[in-house]
Write a protein that binds this DNA or RNA. Structure first.
Length: 99
DNA sequence: AGGGTGACCCGCT
DNA sequence: CAGCGGGCCACCC
């Protein structure tokens, strides 16, 4: 399957804008982002935007699932966990222990 | 215009 | 408590 650039779309822009707001050591869920951009039911597409783009100007590693499990990551789940750990976020068995 | 994909979510079994 | 199924959305061919 091919990856496409969604970074040019208005939707993705909104998503990135919100994700950039997340401060170091903090996390947000896909659903929260969707809600923040005014589309509570677009959590699916939110994950898409992050996956397709994976910009480094956006801390996509701070975005996790609603149940606080790590979720996916383009560069590998391990990397995601590493980064989160580096920011002081504790992860237990693939799940976020504390915000 | 229709079908297929994906870093998801929720409820029911 | 874990697993399955159905339902959302945006985007590409």
């Amino acid at each position: 399957m091919r990856r496409y650039n969604l970074s040019n779309t208005d939707f993705a822009e909104k998503v990135y804008r919100e994700v950039r707001r997340i401060k170091k050591g903090q996390i947000a869920t896909y659903k929260e982002i969707a809600l923040a951009i005014g589309k509570p039911m677009s959590f699916r597409a939110v994950g898409n935007a992050l996956n397709k783009n994976a910009s480094k100007t956006v801390p996509c590693h701070r975005v996790v699932k609603s149940d606080l499990s790590v979720g996916g990551f383009n560069r590998g789940t391990k990397e995601k966990i590493k980064r989160l750990s580096s920011e002081g976020i504790r992860i237990k068995n693939g799940k976020i222990v504390s915000r």
